[in-house]
């Protein structure tokens, strides 16, 4: 298997089996890390930590498993836009709920 080469000429062939298995292994390790990290009590940071690791995992899935890394710029911008809009929806809602006078 020629892992390094495949990344370059994936335009037509997609990533190799090996790369996928490596990514899969990393995903499993990250799953272990996030489960382990949840045992330590960091208060609110637990949520931040859990979401950060989830986002790393999600990026690996999106860029490698879903081939986004090998798609052209248009696709990447579109994906970015979808996530940006979702974060706007969540973020702006907090202008209400985070500042509500005690219920």
């Amino acid at each position: 298997m020629h892992t390094t080469d495949t990344i370059k000429d994936t335009e037509h062939h997609g990533p190799s089996y090996t790369l996928f298995v490596i990514i899969w292994a990393i995903l499993l390790v990250l799953t272990g890390v996030t489960v382990y990290a949840a045992e330590i009590d960091l208060g609110f940071l637990n949520v931040v930590m859990a979401l950060s690791i989830a986002t790393i995992k999600a990026s690996l899935v999106t860029f490698i498993f879903m081939h986004l890394k090998y798609e052209n710029l248009t696709f990447k911008i579109m994906v970015l836009m979808a996530f940006a809009i979702l974060s706007i929806f969540i973020g702006l809602t907090f202008f209400d709920t985070a500042y509500r006078v005690a219920v």
Binding site: T31, A38, V47, A50, L51, I53, A54, A58, V61
Partner: peptide, 10 residues
């Protein structure tokens, strides 16, 4: 990947 930490790990 998001549901798992949000429900099981907080």
């Amino acid at each position: 990947i998001y549901l798992f930490p949000l429900y099981y790990l907080i």
